[in-house]
Simulated scan of single mutants.
Amino acid sequence: MNKKIKTAFLLSMGVVSIALMSCQKGDDSLATKKTAVESTDNDKASALGPWTRLFTDDFNNSNSFNNWTKANRADYNSGICIYDPNVPVTGNYDSKNVLVLTATKNGSTYKSGLIKSNFSFKPNANEEYRTSASIKLVAIDGTTWKDFTQTYGAWPAFWTVQETNWPVKGEIDIVEAYSFGNYAKYASNLFYGTSANNNQLGNTCEKPYNVSAGWHTYDEYWKNVNGSVTVTIQLDGVTVSTYTNAINGNLQLQNFGPHNIIFNLNVGSNSNVGIFNNSQINLFSKTMMWVDYVTVDKRTL
C-alpha cells in the first residue's frame, strides 16, 4: 500500500479459487484466539521450537492505541483519502471488541483511518514470525447493513512494511481488498527495490484469492532458514501464496524488514494508480474495517 504504483493489470487478473475454512469462533476469549491461530500445518514439524507471543492487541479499549501511531495525512495512492487520527476507535460489533476504521465522504474528499504498530520485527537466521489478524469488512446504508462487495472504491489492507525509504526494506501485503460495486478482489503482494520510491517487482508478486463475507483470519508466516527466506500468506489456515528468495532470487527477501504492522482503509486511487474511477465511489453511509485482534509470534527453526 505504501507509495506503490498500481496498474489496470490488477483488474484483468483472474481470481484463484481456494477452499475456505470457517473462522467463526464459539468463544471470543484471547485464549481461544491463541488456539485458533496455532492449529496450522506449519506447526507439524516436531523439531520446531514453540511459538512465543511477542505482540498482541485485542482492542478491548482505547488504551490499545498506546501500541500504535495514527496517521494524519493523505493516502500515498489516493489524494482524495485523508487519514484523520480521530477516526480509529474501538467498538463492539458481533459481540466482539474490535478496532474500527470508518471511511465516509467529507466534501470532495473521504475521511478514513490508518494505524501503524510501534512494534517492529524481522526473522533472524533460523527464526520464523507469524503475524495474524481476524478482520471483517462491511458497510451500512442508513440502518441497512451492506456487504463490502456492494461498495465501490474502498481499498482496505493489512500489511507489514518499513516505510522509511520505501521499498528498500520491502513490503508484504497480507490482504488488500478492492470493491467494485457488485464484486470485490483480494490479493497478497510484495514490493521491493534497491532505491527509494523505485519498486522493481511490478505486479509479478500479486496473488489474487477469493474471500467470502464475514470474519476471516489472515496470517503472514515469515521465516529465515540460514538465509533462505520464505513468506507464506494464509486465509483461514489455507495457504494462498508463497514467496521465497531461494526460488525467486530477484525477490531479495533477505533484505526485507524490520517491519511494522499497518491496518488502513483507503478510498479511491490516483490517476497513475488506475484502479478506480473516483467519480463512481460509493461507500453508502459508511464503510468499515473491523479488526478483532492482531498477534505476532516467534519460534526457532
Rank of each mutant, 00 (worst) to 15 (best):
residue 195 S to W: 04
residue 186 Y to Q: 06
residue 198 N to D: 12
residue 189 N to S: 13
residue 204 T to D: 14
residue 240 V to N: 03
residue 244 T to Q: 06
residue 183 Y to G: 10
residue 182 N to V: 02
residue 196 A to K: 13
residue 214 G to H: 11
residue 192 Y to D: 02
residue 228 S to D: 13
residue 213 A to C: 09
residue 210 N to K: 10
residue 227 G to R: 13
residue 189 N to E: 11
residue 231 V to D: 04
residue 209 Y to G: 06
residue 230 T to A: 06
residue 240 V to K: 03
residue 203 N to Q: 14
residue 219 D to Y: 02
residue 196 A to P: 03
residue 195 S to C: 08
residue 213 A to I: 08
residue 231 V to N: 08
residue 215 W to H: 11
residue 227 G to T: 14
residue 185 K to G: 01
residue 216 H to V: 04
residue 219 D to G: 04
residue 185 K to F: 03
residue 230 T to P: 07
residue 203 N to L: 14
residue 228 S to H: 06
residue 184 A to L: 01
residue 218 Y to N: 01
residue 205 C to M: 15
residue 211 V to T: 05
residue 245 N to C: 01
residue 237 G to M: 08
residue 184 A to I: 01
residue 202 G to D: 11
residue 191 F to S: 14
residue 204 T to I: 11
residue 182 N to I: 01
residue 197 N to C: 04
residue 219 D to P: 03
residue 217 T to E: 14
residue 218 Y to M: 05
residue 197 N to T: 10
residue 226 N to S: 15
residue 218 Y to Q: 02
residue 240 V to Y: 02
residue 217 T to I: 15
residue 230 T to W: 07
residue 228 S to T: 08
residue 225 V to L: 06
residue 223 K to N: 15
residue 243 Y to Q: 06
residue 244 T to C: 07
residue 186 Y to P: 02
residue 224 N to H: 10
residue 217 T to C: 05
residue 191 F to E: 09
residue 213 A to V: 12
residue 222 W to A: 02
residue 222 W to G: 02
residue 224 N to C: 10
residue 201 L to T: 06
residue 213 A to G: 11
residue 208 P to N: 06
residue 219 D to N: 14
residue 229 V to H: 00
residue 222 W to P: 05
residue 237 G to K: 08
